[in-house]
């Protein structure tokens, strides 16, 4: 009886805590954006959807967020794969693991402020450069936070997600017996470089591609980091939507909801097209 009841309860709990609020939230946002709810509504309208679809700045926000997400994930992936392959034995054991996983302890907001303290023109690096005589004033320091290319956002995102990727790559490496496969490949005459290119990297990528996609979406949708390290234009999508909903004009709220539903639909579409995530590799390797 217990064995049968438990999975049902788990599904019920998942439905209540995850699916129901999500569907309810999306339905509410959709009805608000169509003028079907809201205190100031004047009845059904498609005006807000048309505005959202025709908004150049919104599509710019989508593209900007996507590029920030892709660049952050690619950089993190390169670092994580290098670390997982180079230091595989020690990466999840001993003191070294504390150092690798330290960024996991920092909430995104704290990490963003830390990056601001490091990299802003009045930050630590700028002050050190000034004291050492490399720059003549603090404002001569290269502008890497609140910059057009989102360097500060990318740097902060890389710090936040690289430990996750390191765990992921390290686990795939172990679970897929890549060490043995590499040995076999070399025994059959492949060079180390060819083994990496034809065996190790394709397996790592194949097994992690859905998770990588989810992390691209995670970075694209982040709010606190671009709020602190970003600028008003170009603006990442979450910040743009929240500002639409929360700023001075109450008539902009339905437009903000239309933007958020549109973004959610795009993300769901991408997830449906690309299939299921490889969840088993997200578990840390505890022995």
């Amino acid at each position: 009886m217990k064995l049968k009841l438990y999975p049902v309860l788990i599904k019920l709990l998942f439905g209540l805590l995850i699916v129901l609020p999500l569907v309810a939230g999306l339905s509410y946002a959709l009805s608000y954006s169509l003028g079907l709810s809201g205190l100031l509504t004047k009845g059904f309208t498609l005006d807000y959807w048309l505005k959202a679809l025709m908004s150049k700045s919104l599509w710019m926000s989508f593209l900007y967020s996507l590029s920030i997400g892709l660049v952050s994930v690619v950089i993190s992936l390169c670092i994580a794969v290098s670390m997982a392959l180079s230091w595989n034995k020690s990466i999840q054991q001993g003191r070294f693991s504390y150092f690798i996983f330290l960024p996991l302890c920092f909430p995104a907001t704290v990490m963003a402020f830390l990056v601001l303290q490091w990299l802003s023109p009045s930050g630590w690096f700028s002050r050190i450069a000034f004291e050492l005589g490399f720059i003549h004033s603090l404002n001569d320091f290269p502008n890497v936070v609140r910059d057009f290319y989102g360097i500060g956002i990318i740097f902060c995102s890389v710090l936040l997600i690289t430990p996750f990727f390191t765990i992921l790559m390290s686990n795939i490496y172990r679970n897929e017996n890549l060490l043995e496969l590499e040995k076999l490949s070399k025994t059959l005459g492949a060079s180390s470089r060819k083994t990496l290119r034809r065996v190790t990297l394709p397996i790592l990528f194949k097994k992690s591609k859905m998770t990588l996609l989810l992390f691209v979406i995670f970075v694209m949708s982040s709010y606190e980091v671009p709020l602190i390290l970003g600028r008003q234009y170009p603006q990442m999508v979450s910040v743009a939507i929240v500002q639409k909903i929360q700023k001075f004009n109450l008539d902009d709220i339905p437009l903000g909801f239309a933007m958020s539903v549109l973004y959610a639909l795009l993300v769901i579409l991408v997830l449906v097209v690309f299939g299921k995530p490889s969840r088993k590799y997200l578990k840390p390797n505890i022995k």
């Binding site: 802003s120 023109p121 009045s122 709020l227 600028r231």
Partner: peptide, 22 residues
């Protein structure tokens, strides 16, 4: 500041920039 390409998001950020001499 920042050649007018970015603006402090709120007055608290502006106070921080002022306090740090930026």
């Amino acid at each position: 500041w920042q050649e007018g390409e970015a603006f402090p998001e709120n007055v608290a950020q502006m106070h921080q920039l002022f306090a740090s001499g930026e």
